[in-house]
Design a protein around this nucleic acid. Sequence first.
RNA 1: GCCGGCAUAGCUCAGUGGUAGAGCAGCGGUUUUGUAAACCGUUGGUCGGGAGUUCAAAUCUCUCUGCCGGCACCA
Length: 642
Amino acid sequence: MPVITLPDGSQRSYERAVSVAEVAATIGSGLARAALAGRVDGKLVDTSFVVERDAAVSIVTDRDPEGLEVIRHSTAHLLAQAVKQLFPEAQVTIGPTIEDGFYYDFAYQRAFTPEDLAAIEVRMKELAKADEKVSRRVMARDDAVRLFRDMGENYKAEIIQAIPAGEPISLYGQGDWVDLCRGPHVPSTGKLKAFKLMKLAGAYWRGDSRNEMLQRIYGTAWPDQKQLDAYLHRLEEAEKRDHRKIGRELDLFHMQEEAPGAVFWHPKGWQVFQTLIQYMRDKQTAAGFQEVNGPELMDRSLWEASGHWATFGENMYTTRTPDDRVYAIKPMNCPGHVQIFKQGIKSYHQLPVRYAEFGKVHRYEPSGALHGLMRVRAFTQDDAHIFVTEEQITSEAVASTRLILDIYKDFGFEDVGIKFSDRPTKRVGADEVWDKAERALRDASGAAGIEYSLNRGEGAFYGPKLEFVLRDAIGRDWQCGTLQVDLNMPGRLGAHYIDDHSARRTPVMLHRAIFGSLERFYGILLEHHAGRLPAWLAPVQVVVMGITDRQHPYVLETADFLKNQGVLVQIDLRNEKVGFKIRDHTLQRVPYLLVAGDKEVAANLISVRSRSGKDLGAMTPQTFTERLRAEIESHGRRTLED
RNA sequence: GCCGGCAUAGCUCAGUGGUAGAGCAGCGGUUUUGUAAACCGUUGGUCGGGAGUUCAAAUCUCUCUGCCGGCACCA
């Protein structure tokens, strides 16, 4: 005689044990139809789950996040069912849900083609339309292993084998198809109304590159067609802000096959790059950093001493010179900075020593990893190394953390996540040293009052790190900044300072980057702003144009004035209608367009239009410049449009 | 690096074995223009590189390179 408590607190009692579906039906027929799963005392279950004693029950529908999960998970099963019907030889493996959808990995003797994908989707729609009942049953582990092995599903059998023997295994079936699954699943395939297969890809079995490659089919699923369409539209919008496309359209940079993973910066693109560097230079100088510059090429012996040769060697470019020496092109700036630190004798009075470099590094990345500006082989780091005493670690780490978060705000990134990466398998230094370094970084995090998630085994080979992760305008995460405590490399490279007892001590080195890779940060900015860089970053801040060629002298004069005030300005004297010029420069995402006709010339004014199409009225060039300067100094927090 | 796809004019893209195309951009001209595309004319490509099949290859095959989407790796 279960008494069931619903989410609104109301209670219903039943004569006998009831299923979740029956509970839904007694509440209302609409809810019964919408029920995808249930939550019984907090546990997610199928609608067929039978409640035998008093419990808190809620009905999960497609309006609940869990409901959407269930839809996606069940759609993954539907995909596998369709694949097995069309390609009986294919073996199933795993099919989890992911953000916005799901995937399923299959082992099959030949590659699936885009045509196969279309056929699979058609079959999925047929199966959904047939509205087959989804049933759940439980069996002992070894029976399940035997069942799947008999079906020729060796991967699945391997997965189940890994489950502890005592645990019962739940199987889900629909029509002729059965799969191992924890569930829950929709009660019948007819609940799956809006899905689409997205792409084919390779994926290693168990995510290990030493294993064979399976074929992964990605799909997306939503409660209804409208939400599916909205999702597909979002993808199209995201494609429009692809930095590679924007870079070409705005003539910022290009890449070509003779220099894979390296960037050719065009004049406008380099202007932005320089703005980023200058901004960071000013911030760092104010924070007590000194800019240095180390050599690109250093002898192999130095990289052996630093530990790079052994632990990072396969990512390094090397060159053999006519005198038969082997040099490596620097993949990191730290060894160079240690050399600078080592010159002369450093006293503890001088610490912390803060060296910063806009250092261009080269790393031989796997060809498949390259991706526009986001993943390149030649990139510039805003790399700093702070040499401190052990006592200074905390205060310096706290100061760096503050600086990092402060700088991200200027770029409009308020949502910053922090990860703590501890010792990796491939590392240098004794475990006691790592214990100490990890403790120091944890203490510093505590002192800075930041929260982080743990990223096990992802530290650098020389020390643990904090990683700062930005979330961009379309919700993607990008790891940019880093702060690392290094108790290894200074000693390996023979750095020391003299302490207050005239003794030689090895300094601790903090590695710190804020942009991380300037190239990548630039790409993130382009996508974050969809190319509409705020005026303080824009390569061309203003275009001045006339209506006819009568205004040309005034246009030139105005542009000169702006230029002398430090504004990045271009003129447009082309023989075109003003509408054409407005369109052209708007597409180029120029923040402000200044138009001069006879009226403006007569009154010494300029008409101002923003790239968003807003008419900001006529003002003197002087007023415009002052307002633009205020916008630039605020890093776009206050604009002319406000 | 691995799996799959793709590579045609500056850009976006047609062209599936029989003389390489369109729109935009560029160039020349006309037009002197008031806030997202005036009009007319016109230049431009060893179809990513190499090899092969064929009377004939942008098109079929092999191979190399690069790019794209994933995986693995990672800033």
